[in-house]
Amino acid sequence: MSVTFLGNGPAITIQDLGRPNQIAAGLSRGGAMDQLALLEAAALLQSPSVLPALEIAGFGGAFKIETQTRIALTGSPMAASLEGLPLAWNHTHMIPAGATLQLGACRSGSYGYLTFAGGIKSPPHLGSQSAHLMAGIGAALAPGERIEINQDPDPDAAQMALATEPRFDGGILHVVAGPQTDLFDEATQTAFFSAEFTKSNRANRQGVGLDHPSLKFGTDLAAGLASDFIMQGDIQQTGDGVPYVLMAECQTMGGYPRIGTVVPQDLPKLAQAQPGTRFIFKLVSRAQAEALAKTEAEQLKALRAKVTTVVRNPADMSDLLSYQLISGVTAGHDPEG
């Protein structure tokens, strides 16, 4: 049971929720840039847990799928087609054996996710299948490369859809103060938390730069600081006084001062925005941030409640045999239940 990457985008990797609790070894968590997209896929495919998916940055790609399986398409919407027929985003789809799935460039956002109902079969390293390119774990898919997938556990399941919250247009990034916030004087903090930034081109799985047309946000107290812990979401001010938010594949320690930490639930918004998208950092108390915070289990539960069964009109379907129409109606899955 395999899928062959026929080629296109240069930055397609296997991603799950990463490797927590490896900081003492010097390894950051890594995992999908938009972890919400993995939770959405799990809800759509009615999987009890998050499945490792293909994270597809920017360009899309073509995939020959050798085995019949359901898939979910989540994250940044891409022009998707199966043997030339368009496929809806944020939906599950049944792919017949031997079909070619074509994903185009991101329409909005930066990372699309292709999840197979049975998950991807690849050797875990330290409890995760995620590629962590900065650490030298795994690699981007090369054209012609085959990956193995597991059997779809429920091929008769109905087609499902999910109406998602928009997260591709920038906006407010909620920030909590960190151990080094006080190294920045009050005037700098005030200016920083009222300035409007744009996402820069300096963005990858390691971090995202933000630009401001005129202001710099430095501190004189940075010189000679011992390297200290850095985490995902930290807003690091490098030597030139420009903010750089650390993302999935950040280093675990660094010497540059950090003005605060973007809360986890806003990171998908920052990861997904295209260059030029506008953002404002808003300082909130830890209590406010905690009120917003949801665990993965809570998020998954909420998403499951929002998933709906797609009822199709047979007249709209050009190839009835490629759809599990009857079982879709009769399988009796009640997503609200």
Binding site: A24, L27, A135, Q251, G254
Partner: peptide
């Protein structure tokens, strides 16, 4: 002194 920055890398 400690491991950090990258996996297994020691100061």
């Amino acid at each position: 002194l400690t491991l950090g920055f990258a996996p297994g890398q020691a100061y």
